[in-house]
């Protein structure tokens, strides 16, 4: 068995990148402040020192240019990993993402690959206002041609990033700032876990049952998984047995895994920090009902971000965010039914 280290998501991501760069000279990284600074969120720390400025490239603030460039490099045989500092900035460069990166394999009739990864930070909760706090999971997941993953802990972060880099299709890799282990963005201890030194892959498109239970299924991704785990722990005291599923990937969505769990519990809660409407929760409900419209013993519930821009002020933002408390309340009312 290979040695393991207790790592933050930031360090696990940097470790995956370093190992993939050592193994494959075609892997390179570009983005804003990712070279000497090591990334605003720490996920490229140490890479510039090891690989130099040719392969770890600071870019101008020109997302359309360098994400478009990533597409071209990927189609020409390289494996670019490109950072979009905050996912909220997709607005200035989305064409390169959804019309080029996501469609060029298809347009080429499968003759071209686009082995490219976009890493972007997500999430709020620390009062960064409405242009620096969004998740936007569904925005990417809605559009065909890109895989979308979001780790909730360091072990998954490394395995998913390695799989994303080796994938011949484009992958959007969304890491939550509150889970990054950076301290200045808060710390979620459960996101810091043992990570094997040896490189490994997690299969993209496979969900995980984090804890098994029999009463209620809670499905989430990223930060929501931690809220769900805390709620499950509390609810144990009330003798309510919760099953928590960490999707890990939004595209492909592991529908079978969710359905198997709801088959057992008959009760479903989806927790999503992304906006409420037209999103992950609706997609999951629909997928379950399409499979069997009699499966639910109670109406499913969703704990999501309301359909409003994210307010700066703490009381308003905290009120709007999914929380452990909201999940507990939902479970208690659901259990009574």
């Amino acid at each position: 068995m290979s040695a393991t280290n207790k790592l933050t998501i930031a360090r696990a991501m940097a470790e995956s990148l370093a190992q993939e760069m050592r193994a494959d000279p075609n892997v390179f990284i570009m983005g804003e402040d990712i070279a000497q600074l090591g990334g605003v969120f720490g996920n490229t720390r140490g890479l510039y020192a090891e690989f130099g400025g040719e392969r770890v490239r600071d870019t101008p603030i020109s997302e359309t240019a360098f994400i478009g460039a990533g597409v071209g490099a990927a189609m020409d045989g390289m494996r670019p990993v490109v950072e979009l500092m905050f996912v909220d900035f997709f607005g200035v460069c989305f064409d390169a993402i959804y019309n080029l990166m996501a469609k060029n394999i298809y347009f080429s009739g499968g003759h071209s690959n686009v082995p490219m990864v976009i890493m972007a930070s997500t999430g709020g909760g620390y009062s960064d206002g409405g242009q620096h706090s969004q998740c936007l999971y569904a925005t990417f997941a809605h559009l065909p041609g890109m895989k979308v993953v979001a780790p909730s802990n360091a072990y998954d972060a490394k395995g998913l990033l390695t799989a994303a880099i080796r994938d011949n299709s484009p992958v959007i890799y969304l890491f939550h700032k509150g889970l990054q282990g950076m301290g200045w963005l808060g710390t979620e201890p459960a996101a810091i876990n043992q990570v094997p030194e040896e490189n490994y892959q997690l299969e993209i498109g496979k969900a995980k049952t984090v804890i098994s239970g029999t009463d209620i299924t809670i499905v989430s991704i990223g930060m929501g998984v931690h809220h769900a785990l805390k709620a499950a722990h509390e609810l144990q005291k009330a003798d309510i047995s919760i099953e928590v599923i960490d999707l890990c990937s939004l595209v492909p969505l592991d529908r079978e895994h969710i359905i198997a769990s709801v088959n057992k519990t008959g009760k479903l809660i989806v927790v999503d920090e992304d906006y409420h409407s037209y999103g992950m929760s609706g997609e999951i409900f629909a997928s379950v009902i399409e499979h069997d419209h009699t499966i639910f013993k109670t109406p499913p519930q969703r704990i999501t971000y309301p359909d409003i821009p994210i307010p700066f002020s703490r009381p308003m933002e905290q009120w709007a965010l999914p929380s452990t408390e909201k999940i507990i309340n939902a479970c208690l009312t659901m259990k009574e039914k």
């Binding site: 603030i61 909220d88 900035f89 607005g91 200035v92 009062s127 960064d128 206002g129 409405g130 242009q131 620096h132 821009p309 307010p311 700066f312 002020s313 308003m316």
Partner: peptide, 26 residues
């Protein structure tokens, strides 16, 4: 506050003097 706390320091809007700002570069 100018926007009742919805904007914050990167989103200051004051219609009286025609001032606005955005946190997205350019």
């Amino acid at each position: 506050g100018l926007s009742g706390g919805r904007g914050g320091h990167m989103h200051l809007f004051d219609k009286d003097v025609n001032f606005a700002c955005s946190g997205i570069i350019a």
